[in-house]
């Protein structure tokens, strides 16, 4: 009886062993490909010394509202004004922040262009005249990651009637160098 039992156990062990040796496995590989490309991003920020952007600060679609402006008398904080015998200029600091990612570009070029024609008033960005005829180069060596103040200035002739609303857009384009 004992022999029978032992044989039986042995046979069972053998069977277990043969089952364990049988390899029923599968393997696979996934090749992942991505192409990283450099990119830059432009946003407008309020400059501490200028008029606070009334909307869109931190985005690429902001609004700079000068409010009521005049050649003489009180002027809002943040507006720099100069007056000649025939016109006056109001100016506000505006920060442009261009950031880069995955780019070896050392700096960027910035252009600006008026959205629509203005035959009466004179516009400048960073001291450079801008019109709607062509994009004007504002800087060729913009620094990434830092707020750069490019003041926006508008020169208004004395002949402009009181109550006139002046409104326009300036399209900025930053291009990695």
């Amino acid at each position: 009886m004992k022999k029978v039992t032992l044989l039986t156990i042995f046979a069972a062990l053998m069977m277990i062993s043969s089952a364990a040796v049988a390899q029923t496995t599968a393997s696979g590989t996934l090749t992942v490909t991505a192409t990283v490309t450099g990119s830059i991003n432009l946003v407008f920020n309020s400059d501490a010394s200028g008029v606070a952007l009334s909307s869109g600060a931190g985005t690429n679609a902001a609004t700079l509202a000068f409010g009521n402006v005049s050649a003489f008398g009180a002027i809002s904080a943040g507006i720099v004004r100069s007056t000649t015998a025939t016109n006056f200029t109001v100016s506000s600091a505006v920060d442009v922040l261009v950031t880069k990612t995955n780019s070896v570009s050392a700096n960027y070029s910035l252009t600006a262009q008026l959205g629509s024609v203005d035959a009466v008033n004179t516009w400048t960005v960073g001291g450079v005249g801008v019109t709607n005829a062509a994009a004007a180069p504002i800087t060729a060596t913009g620094t990434y990651g830092a707020n750069s103040n490019f003041p926006v200035a508008i020169t208004v002739p004395f002949t402009t009637a009181s109550g006139t609303l002046i409104s326009n857009t300036i399209n900025y384009v930053a291009t990695a160098n």
Binding site: V69, V152, I166, S167, I170, A174
Partner: peptide
């Protein structure tokens, strides 16, 4: 070339003001 493809970004700043008469 693909890396050198102009990386650019644009933004639009809208400016408004209301001209008032003044004397000095």
């Amino acid at each position: 070339a693909s890396n050198a493809t102009a990386q650019s970004s644009s933004g639009q700043l809208t400016i408004t003001m209301n001209v008032q008469s003044s004397i000095t």
